[in-house]
Design a protein around this nucleic acid. Structure first.
Lengths: 340, 340
DNA sequence: GCTGGCACTCGTGTGATCGGAGTGCCAACT
DNA sequence: AGTTGGCACTCCGATCACACGAGTGCCAGC
């Protein structure tokens, strides 16, 4: 049975523990929060909460500490997003409005997020896979060397160098350029890569081999989602506030260098839906003492990437959730503007 | 007076201290190294070395620890580069030969360097300023929107979007493209930016305004050295082996997020000349307990960027110096190849 | 069902003790 | 003059005992 007052007690425990980082006892609890009941009553409630696994006693005669389950209940039932102060809102918008290109947006966001939450922030670069082809450019550096430039709707630019077996005339290249753009402009890159498959036979069939080489590399560039795995990280210095190094900080530092791991950590939550992964709920047992607060971003409900923060399970969930959501919204807005 | 045997003693102290991380006493020293003299003799030498400031006693009746000055002497006079094992050499070359583009080279190098040295590695992206223009491409996305693409000799690609006041015909654009490339191809970008200044008046003077807008942005892109400040960092998890967190690790983590600071740390040492900055010799007093081993890289003595490692003053200098030099050489070679 | 009282537990901080590693110095030896 | 063995001394760090106090669980009374 978890009644209202027990929930109040749990909330108080979480808040105090997050603030002090020390197990919290019944007496201090009644003093700090106006619970209106005596310590003895709170002790009874605490015993019940412990019975149900929401809190835990490191050892007899110590205060209580929330368990992962307790944090989970706190986040689901008790946490209301702390509204950002207007100063914070202004800081976000002025900083991000000053960004000049896509990389700049990502790098400024991640730094901002780590400063707002005083934790480790992670921002995934927008994925290519959902974006469309804006333009393809073919540049003959030498007669047998062609530079492919692929410009995507998100503003990302990919380039590839192709060495040809035999020379390709400028006129042929121009024709190919037109054909490629006609086939792919405005098309999602996955579909665009497919659309390129038939092209060499239709255009300039007598130059099949040479043309095919170019088109193949281009299709590869479109299907190559390597850069989907790119992420930016900031705020590792905040780890210094962590307690013990080897069990908490070290695995996290290692994870932060494995971008694939990070992407798995961030997960795939929807745009405007902040998800919280607490302790052992995450995919990595080494990170069981850490929580992840993440969300997706992208214009108009289109999930282009994820961002979030990682911190100790004992973190300020309401604050982090609010910051993550706020930054995600601004990033989404900016991506939307840049796209018009 | 620092005679040969005292130098031997110093070398032994440094090596032992680096290995054990504990102050080293006279007795252990004679046992571990075949010094051929008695502990008492070593003690005399140690007293002399301490007198001259090369070693230091944390407290009476403790062993000795090298001072910054001691490390300096060790590096200058005593350290011979540990040759890389053939396995290591092979690992370097196969890894880096597999890199597909410039970013890939940098990212693989930095990871490699951190693994070889088990320390924090830093690699600066090649600077734009020393590179030459390989090709400029102008693409009309719409009649009033032109995408500039600047391809540099290092393989870097910069793009800029220009909004025009009035439409620019495709033929005019083609003419401009030719003129721009004629003026800048093969020229160092600083000079190329200057060379562009007169162009609008010579070519298509009747379209002066429109042309000028394009050329101005292009010149800006050439003079914009923002990406000179880009660096890649890896191996922060190795910081976990550090002793005390707040004085050593935290400031370093903070520094690692400030790319400008990192560049200052790396400094500007010549290609193929490994420089070592020990403790307080560096530019930041917060990092006085860290040393930096760095070198420049670039094809044929041309300094395109720096790379190196940061670690505690008590680090394995010979090993780090060898690794830094080896990686720098491979990177230089690859940049050279990609350039032909 | 809440509260005050009370005995009990147990972790932490403090102070004392002790061993050992390491030193500096001196006298003797080469 | 340089090297060596001996020896007294210093001082850190580990170990231990102990007292303190925060916190608990339980019970009887309101």
């Amino acid at each position: 049975m978890v009644d209202d007052r027990k929930l109040d007690v749990l909330r108080a425990i979480v808040e105090d523990y997050v603030a002090t980082e020390e197990p919290v006892g019944s007496k201090a609890l009644v003093e700090r929060h106006g619970l209106g009941v005596s310590p003895a009553t709170v002790r009874n409630d605490m015993a019940a909460l412990e019975e149900e696994g929401y809190i835990h006693q490191p050892h007899t005669s110590a205060g209580r500490v929330p368990t992962d389950k307790g944090y989970r209940l706190f986040v689901d039932k008790l946490a209301t997003l702390k509204p950002m102060s207007t100063a914070e809102r202004r800081a976000i918008s002025t900083l991000l409005d000053g960004a000049v290109d896509l990389d700049d947006v990502v790098q400024k966001s991640v730094r901002l997020l780590s400063q707002l939450t005083r934790q480790v922030a992670i921002v995934q670069y927008p994925t290519l896979s959902r974006s469309t082809v804006r333009h393809v450019e073919l540049v003959a550096l030498t007669p047998t060397r062609v530079m492919l430039i692929l410009i995507l709707s998100t503003g990302r630019v990919e380039q590839r160098l192709v060495e040809l077996e035999s020379a390709l005339a400028e006129a042929d290249l121009a024709e190919l350029r037109v054909a490629v753009n006609r086939a792919t402009a405005g098309v999602q890159i996955a579909a665009a890569a497919a659309a390129l498959a038939d092209l060499p036979d239709v255009v300039r069939p007598e130059q099949g081999e040479t043309t095919r080489a170019v088109v193949t590399v281009l299709a590869e560039a479109m299907s190559d989602h390597r850069s989907d795995e790119r992420v930016a990280v900031s705020g590792t210095a905040n780890l210094a506030r962590y307690g013990d190094f080897d069990t908490a900080v070290r695995p996290l530092l290692e994870a932060l260098e494995e971008h694939v791991v990070l992407l798995k950590l961030l997960g795939e939550s929807g745009v405007d839906a902040v998800t919280v992964r607490i302790g052992h709920e995450g995919p990595y047992s080494e990170l069981a003492s850490n929580s992840v607060v993440a969300t997706g971003y992208g214009p108009q409900e289109l999930h282009l990437g994820s961002l979030g923060v990682v911190g100790p399970t004992r973190m300020d969930y309401p604050g982090s959730m609010a910051a993550v959501r706020a930054v995600a919204r601004y990033v989404s807005r900016i991506l939307d503007e840049g796209n018009q």
